[in-house]
Design a protein around this nucleic acid. Structure first.
Lengths: 397, 397
DNA sequence: ATTCTTCCTGAATCTTTAA
DNA sequence: TTTAAAGATTCAGGAAGAA
């Protein structure tokens, strides 16, 4: 169900103790008009300009009070905000829900396109998680153990001796005692989820749109199938889409008719872009071996991950243009490596290119090295060559 | 300088506008006695129990007010806290420093062992960064580009056409136009730094000890060499150790005599488990730089510590004897390096020795390289030589 | 001073081209 | 036809410049 109105009016009419979870993504107190034009030409906007902070906080407090009423005893609220007013909002949550019902300060972190600012790049938003009572619904999600974890710690039972020291437990015959099966690491309060990319198909053209991925996590930890979710600032309807996909009931409220219309459209054909980054992990993009990275580091390069011909660029330009660096791969002949680097270097308008030779084999005199390509032999290769010269000298004696 | 007293007393005596940066890691309002036993048997503890939150906040406000007075106009404060009272503390900071001087909410994230609590695992702490004025000192740290980044947009200049669409820029003949040199990505406000491993050497046994890497970052972005740093709750002195290693002056205050004693000990012989970030200051405390280790790794060496003449041995013997490898140090002349390696190599009965030259300077023809010593030039040195040859060619034209 | 406009950036996708 | 690599595109949001 989607309702077009100020959420305060609607919240007042909702029956008490009926909602399982409320997610709200209200204006952040950015003191700007959030505006965006969708590809179909529709312009979505909402004003986040306030007389002063007090006015904003009063507006929020009225709504948060009504939300508490609407929630079931086992229900919880997730308030999405950023550092413009997060501390003030949490004070309100403390007042309305009680400090003892604070559950978590969830940090949503992401990397985003940058801007040139004096200071640190903003890379997170905050979601406050409060419950109506201490008897709240919660589903623990387990993640895999981190690769650095010692597997012994997972499989073996541990024991605390008299001094308070912890050690592994052994039975009478000296065999290790296996711990009861562990499910993994419970999810932390820091969530790394890619920011909804400007090019993602999931984008609707509505400003400040949140990724479905984020809402799925919130819904999964706090509700079960069939539960009822309320989003009083539903905007493009991301929470409703996530709720529908996870078989939860939902109520969305927004005072903008165009937003409500967008929600209806979206719910009929929800698009969730699968984040390749999330699926394969950032490491899948990192294709360099440690040795290659060491060489690039020594030469003071920026590493390039998505180019067959180029492994990195010198941090400094040379003759006003970049210098591409390539390290010969084990499966590449010298001639192939030259070719790949030369082509890529030309496309990128490099003044010079640097090829690091890693494989032995006489440099065929017919192989032409371009005049602006510098070929260096990797240190181990140089050492091998020099040592073999001594070999020959000794043989001759 | 380390002072044993309640910081309020000391802060009142500090001259106004004299401190460049204040880092404080006060009690978090955990309502517990923080207690830990160090390996040497000394028990460190401090009480974090308060009558009520108001009392705690009053205590903090008095001190934050004095800190502001002590700071220079260009100075900043970093207040470390966790979600027990972070919102209340930020309200105080807003009051004392002004909302307009809020700079960042830094999130320190880490993965830690699970506790079986209902809810999300706490995995972060917060550091509020405020400056005294808008004219604050700040050093931007640049990181490498995300592995998903497309290098074209880094290298190519872009242009905005009439419709406001952005596309790559081409010159009259249709060639791409290069953008000016880029520095990398400015550091974000979310810092992933491993929680101090309980067994790490760095651990002194002081409760709530923070990793040195965290303090290094804070110090590097907000101060320059010679600046004065104040830590009014210095505890085990991590901030002071970091300050010392980065050549900053420091004032530490703690009301516990055992903490002050511990600080003195640590400052005399700082131990650092994680030293990747430091190059300048840390060299005094460790034997091999990352670059040296990379070279030794590439040559497939076993690394030797604490030997002036030898940095490593090839894993393989040559002519039935070990081969010693030395990398020329920044403070060694070529002749000195040869001498050191030659002597050490003879003592260890090496068949050959390998010297990696890292510094420019013509190889004096009078310098005699022993017949069983192989001299190789480090890659960056080779590249520099080759590029300067091109320079000369161009100059001659 | 205040508001408006334009510029700049790079993460992560989408689109096109090459194999 | 399918897949992978290379290239193109968009947006949030400060900064700098203009009105």
């Amino acid at each position: 169900m989607i309702i077009c109105d100020d959420c305060l009016n609607v919240l007042k009419k909702i029956e008490s103790d009926t909602i399982d979870m409320v997610y709200l993504d209200p204006p952040f107190f950015s003191q700007k008009v959030q505006c965006m034009k969708a590809s179909n030409g529709v312009e979505y906007k909402f004003s986040d300009i306030w007389e002063n902070k007090g006015e904003y906080l009063k507006y929020m407090k009225f709504r948060i009070q009504e939300i508490k009423k609407a929630l079931k005893k086992t229900g919880s609220i997730f308030l999405h905000c950023d550092n413009s007013a997060s501390h003030n909002l949490r004070i309100i949550l403390d007042e309305v829900f009680g400090e003892e019902n604070f559950r978590s300060e969830i940090i949503w972190t992401y990397k985003r396109w940058s801007n040139a600012k004096k200071g640190l790049m903003p890379g997170h938003q905050t979601i406050f998680f409060y419950s109506k009572t201490s008897d709240f619904k919660f589903n623990t999600i387990y993640h895999e153990y981190s690769p650095t974890t010692n597997i012994d710690q997972i499989l073996q039972e541990r024991i605390r001796n008299g001094n308070g020291k912890v050690s592994y437990k052994y039975d009478e015959i000296g065999n290790i005692v296996l711990a009861k099966e562990k499910k993994g690491v419970p999810m932390s309060d820091v969530w790394e989820i890619p920011f909804l990319n400007p090019k993602a198909k999931e984008r609707t053209g509505y400003p400040t749109q949140k990724p479905i991925e984020l809402l799925e996590k919130i819904i999964e930890i706090s509700t079960n199938e069939g539960d009822c979710i309320l989003d009083p600032f539903c905007g493009s309807g991301t929470a409703l889409v996530a709720a529908k996909m996870l078989n939860r009931r939902y109520i969305g409220i927004d005072k903008s008719p165009s937003a409500v219309e967008l929600c209806h459209q979206r719910l009929e054909a929800p698009i969730k872009t699968e984040s390749r980054l999330l699926r394969v992990g950032a490491d899948a993009y990192r294709t360099k071996t440690d040795e290659e990275l060491a060489i690039l580091n020594m030469l003071e390069c920026d590493v390039v991950q998505r180019n067959k011909g180029i492994d990195g660029f010198l941090k400094k330009f040379y003759l006003g243009a970049p210098v591409a660096v390539k390290i010969q791969k084990p499966y590449e002949s010298f001639a192939e490596a030259i070719d790949l680097l030369n082509h890529a270097g030309k496309r990128k308008k490099c003044s010079f290119t640097v090829l690091i030779r890693t494989l032995e084999g006489l440099v065929d005199s017919e192989i032409l090295v371009p005049s602006n390509m510098i070929v260096l032999d990797e240190l181990k290769l140089q050492l091998g060559v020099k040592l073999s010269k001594y070999d020959k000298k000794i043989m001759q004696r």
